[in-house]
Design a protein around this nucleic acid. Structure first.
Lengths: 260, 260
DNA sequence: GTAAACGGTTTTTTCGAAATTTTCGAAACT
DNA sequence: AGTTTCGAAAATTTCGAAAAAACCGTTTAC
């Protein structure tokens, strides 16, 4: 009956079903749960930028051991959500305008690259998931500063799910991987925006959904680019702390797009 | 006195001196040394693709404890050099043609993006380091399959140093970070090439060096792109194991470069 | 008055053993 | 014969304590 066939041995560099780089630790293990919680707490600024992460407090907060914490923190450092120095422990990664501009520029490329490929390889179930994810998103948003935290959190989850669904059929594991990391990074700044920004924006997600479902690569990418850039502009103009640091706030927005 | 002023509280998003994402753990700590060694061993295929990494053997090989090993392995998973599954430990990440093609395509973009920006922000000391790094590289290479392992390793180090020096003045921390990760990934395949390939190539590094020192962005990027693609082609045609797996070996090489 | 030196306290880092889970082969059953 | 069940062995995961390092307020010397 439905059992996996026994393989002779390790074919020594077999073509894995998923040649993907990696994406997440293991779904169940205890370390993963701690990692997931800490990531969420950093993304939602429960753990504030530059905050010192002492093992004592963390051990209490997440009810786990030092070793497990260390492994989770180690992962967060790799993802760029935490920092660590020689012998003085861990801190939450700082936020800055320069950082937001930099990562947003790279996001424009990775989001459009993955989206274009995803559209070309789209399937029916891909479309179905997009429709579904958009529906859930539209039922909620957009959240305003006065909304309770729970609503904001849920919106964040659905927002991520929607954008993930768009690029789900992209065939480049590495592009998807980096896109995902940068998307999470951007979520920190989105959270700050959600807390402060009061201005409303036209429903960019609906337009994007329709462009993608229409398989219009050019329009979809243009909308995506604008979506990202608008979010940056909104954050810059409406989030108090973010305009203050003038630390080399220029990004490398490529002046000539098509260089050859 | 030169002491850091006490801050009232957490300024909630101060402009950090280095807004960089991250790059490496801590320079000294024992974990870092183990991580460095393991990474090198994976890159040079001392630990072979798909090989199971048991704590028993590893503990003996690197003379360290389980916890330290776990932290290092955890990092390697984040970097895509290892995998881990629910309760069955760690393995070395597999290699495949599809993976090499995919990461190489993304490398073309990231290398040219960072290089173009680095050239625009180049300084005298940047040029000096390039000259120096090239000199060291040219004294050694290129290594042939018959050369001893030590020579190959040293060449790999100098090759990396040369390419790192080219992009050193790039102002985008995120681009540099991802570039660096992908460069290391590519090193695994370069190693396979070094072991097998007997064909000679014209001195692409010299031409690249001169184009960069001449601040010719266009030419430098074109040479870089060709450099990466040629390496892929050489690996595909001369590394035995790499052509065998036909697992969806197509990458997403963007058909239209300038989308808008 | 400034700077270096000291020691107690906190915090991080490292370690190996206990607990849990998986693996694998043999026995029992259909 | 083939499949399932069971139990011993092996490997992984988790944990808290011991060791090492950094921090900070105080004292001491110049």
């Amino acid at each position: 009956m439905a059992k996996i066939l026994k393989m002779p041995l390790e074919p020594l560099s077999r073509a894995a079903a998923t040649t993907a780089p990696q994406d997440v630790l293991r779904e169940d293990a205890a370390t993963f749960e701690v990692l997931r919680q800490m990531r969420e707490d950093i993304l939602c600024c429960v753990l504030k930028p530059d905050q010192r992460l002492r093992f004592g407090e963390l051990r209490q907060r997440y009810d786990t051991s030092v070793g497990t914490l260390r492994e989770a923190l180690s992962h967060l450092v790799s993802e760029g959500l935490a920092r660590t120095e020689a012998g003085r422990g861990f801190t939450v990664a700082p936020v800055s305008l320069a950082d937001f501009l930099d990562l947003s520029e790279l996001r424009v490329y990775l989001e459009t690259r993955t989206l274009a490929d995803a559209i070309r390889h789209g399937t029916d179930s891909w479309e179905a998931e997009i429709v579904s994810a958009y529906f859930l998103l539209s039922k909620l948003g957009p959240p305003m500063p006065d909304d309770p935290v729970g609503v904001k959190r849920e919106w964040g989850k659905r927002h991520k799910r929607f954008h993930d669904s768009l690029v789900a059929t992209c065939t480049s594991p590495w592009s998807l991987h980096f896109r995902s990391e940068l998307f999470d990074q951007a979520r920190r700044y989105h959270w700050l925006t959600m807390i402060h920004a009061r201005s409303r924006r036209p429903n960019e997600h609906l337009a994007l959904r329709d462009a993608v479902l229409a398989r219009d690569v050019d329009l979809s990418c243009r909308l995506t680019e604008k979506h990202i850039r608008t979010t940056v502009d909104q954050a810059v103009s409406e989030v108090p702390g973010l305009t203050m640091d003038r630390a080399s706030g220029r990004s490398i927005r490529p002046s000539r797009r098509n260089k050859r």
